[in-house]
Design a protein around this nucleic acid. Structure first.
Lengths: 140, 140
DNA sequence: CCTAATCCCTCTAGCTACTGTAGCTTCAAG
DNA sequence: CTTGAAGCTACAGTAGCTAGAGGGATTAGG
């Protein structure tokens, strides 16, 4: 029955202590038992769950998705279609973000490259940003 | 002396009305004059400034950067090195985000592709997320 | 001129996923 | 038994808005 303090658990998983209390508050981590003085004492099961959460967060899953994944992980005999769907949806949203960022990248790179680097009156960056006629039609 | 209501300005720029009040509150837009009844009345100069802001936001500049750009745009004879630097810094942060997302994309794509699509007990996605030995060493 | 519809006003709270602070208590080592 | 590190709660703040309550102003039609 290994039991860890909140600080120990935090160091093991690379989280800040406040984050663990926050995860408990929002119900992502179960409330652990306390010492007589009111301090939290965690078990190996807590560590395992938190590691899962940490890894999923590192991969960019949002907390609702992680909640769903944890719930699904409790049913080993269920088919994993739901799990795959969460992962695929996440993949799609990443692809979407990448595409948007690449579009931005192109526009901004073009702005900076075509700037003559003289003064602000003929700075291409400022010009592009101020050209609201184009902007209003292109972006909405 | 064209003057617009807040709703008109919002429609012109594609913003929500609340956002314009918010921009005024944080000092990004100047407070316009009011009618006797207390309603805001904007001028063409407001529209121009807001269009600039809108375009810059669409390109992903954060509000502090936009403040700086607007300040710089007021000095047409100054060199545009500061402007270019803001744009280049933004470009670098976009490149950084793209790189991170591509790394995530690879990991998640691999997870989903190697999943046998049976049940949760042998779902590759859940396995990877639960493998905290690997995870703790690879990611911190 | 009156009325109804539409717009606008302020103020407050909420969103994500945390992070930081203040002021206090508990624990573990020596 | 003392001391210093670590823990506790509660609240405020981050970015950039969005939504709602409970009212007042404006305007177009009749």
């Amino acid at each position: 029955m290994s039991d860890y303090s909140i600080g120990h658990l935090a160091r093991q998983t690379g989280y800040a202590v406040q984050t663990l209390r926050y995860y408990e508050e929002i119900g992502l981590m179960p409330a652990p038992p306390r010492t007589g003085g009111g301090q939290r004492r965690y078990s190996a099961a807590h560590l395992e769950r938190l590691s899962f959460i940490r890894h999923a967060r590192d991969l960019g899953f949002d907390i609702d998705a992680i909640r769903a994944l944890l719930r699904l992980a409790e049913h080993p005999n269920a088919p994993c279609t739901d799990v795959d769907q969460i992962a695929l949806a996440h993949l799609a949203s990443i692809d979407d973000k990448i595409a948007r960022l690449q579009a931005l990248r192109r526009e901004i790179a073009q702005m900076t490259e075509s700037c003559a680097n003289r003064n602000i009156a003929n700075c291409r960056v400022i010009e592009v940003l101020a050209e609201h006629k184009q902007c209003l039609h292109d972006h909405h």
